[in-house]
């Protein structure tokens, strides 16, 4: 039985996950709690990026409206909390239901289009949600809403302390990674991947690709919604800004930077994105310019993203 990872990239990813698992301990030893917050935020975005990767990387559906699900998930915490409903299961159930329904309805329409039309229509739906929440003055409108208490779960599942919340997020990340891995390697995933390359061919093999792609879109929306629920709890403040189209663009960059259509690509892409965002902003106030240039260079020269670079170290034999 093989215990150790057999490729360089797998070793790096395993090491990365181990580091993430012990990160709270490391940050407490060096007395830098800020980094735990940074990491928590990064992992939430990683879950969102993983969900986008499911449709973008594996399914070839480039959505420029995925941040809407982050907002929906966050408001599924914020609005019940506004009425003093803090039950975590309620928040989670509401998130799954609302983000799933929204994905089902919008996906049923969006997936009738392709290419640039798909991008535009997902953006349009996302902006629709954005402006809906901007106009809801009851829930703070443009100013947003403060969440005074985090979602309440049984004690052993509590997310009250920063470390407990971090492990909540980390567990959701691990479950998401495992779930997506199983999903894309099952027949369902193979149909999605095959459809990205040749949808007509997949239909000629007896698959209603529309239904498969719609199911994939809904699953992706629900996962991203859960990321939004975590973000709402993490920031204790929600606003329509969470679902702006620039956030959707950032998610695409995270996926592309890490390696679209790979399991760990979006995770390392998000880590790199958050790291660069944080540390470049300390160097200069013009960090957006440097960041933008780096992203352009990555798109032009970094085919396969970070995962592509790491895979270059995997020998042919190891890759199997």
């Amino acid at each position: 039985m093989r215990i150790l990872p057999r490729t360089v990239s797998a070793t790096v990813y395993t090491g990365f996950l181990v580091l993430l698992a012990i990160a709270p301990w490391i940050f407490s030893v060096i007395d830098e709690p800020f980094y735990l917050d940074l990491l928590s935020r990064g992992l939430i975005l990683a879950v969102a990026a993983l969900s986008l990767n499911l449709i973008l990387g594996y399914g070839g559906m480039v959505s420029l409206g995925h941040a809407a699900y982050i907002g929906i998930g966050a408001y599924c915490v914020g609005i019940p909390a506004y009425y003093d409903f803090y039950n975590g299961w309620l928040h989670l159930g509401l998130t799954v239901l609302v983000s799933g329904l929204f994905a089902l309805v919008t996906g049923a329409i969006c997936l009738r289009t392709k290419g640039v039309y798909f991008i535009m229509i997902t953006l349009a739906f996302s902006q629709m949600v954005y402006f809906t929440f901007v106009s809801l003055e009851e829930y703070g409108g443009d100013d947003g809403l403060v969440i005074y208490l985090r979602s309440e779960f049984p004690t052993w599942l509590s997310m009250d302390s920063p470390v407990a919340l971090y492990y909540w997020i980390f567990t959701v990340l691990l479950i998401t990674l495992f779930f997506i891995h199983r999903l894309v390697h099952a027949r369902f995933g193979r149909v999605i991947v095959g459809s990205r390359f040749n949808e007509d061919r997949m239909q000629s093999l007896g698959y209603s690709t529309y239904r498969y792609r719609l199911s994939c879109y809904v699953i992706s929306g629900v996962i991203c919604g859960i990321a939004g629920m975590l973000l709402g709890n993490f920031t204790s403040f929600i606003s329509p800004e969470m679902m702006g189209w620039t956030r959707s663009g950032e998610l695409i960059f995270m996926v592309v930077m890490g390696g679209a259509g790979t399991l760990f690509g979006p995770l390392v892409g998000t880590a790199a994105f958050v790291f660069l965002e944080e540390f470049l902003s300390r160097i200069t106030i013009y960090w957006h310019l440097i960041f933008g240039l780096m992203l352009i260079a990555l798109v032009l020269f970094g085919k396969g993203g970070i995962h592509g670079w790491l895979s270059a170290f995997d020998s042919e034999e190891e890759r199997g």
């Binding site: 027949r187 193979r190 149909v191 991947v193 095959g194 990205r196 390359f197 040749n198 061919r201 093999l205 007896g206 259509g261």
Partner: peptide, 19 residues
């Protein structure tokens, strides 16, 4: 028109059915 992004096994398994 085989799927280049799927392995040979996946090309076959993904389409298995008994119509």
């Amino acid at each position: 028109q085989i799927f280049p992004n799927l392995s040979v096994r996946e090309n076959l398994i993904a389409t298995a059915a008994n119509f």
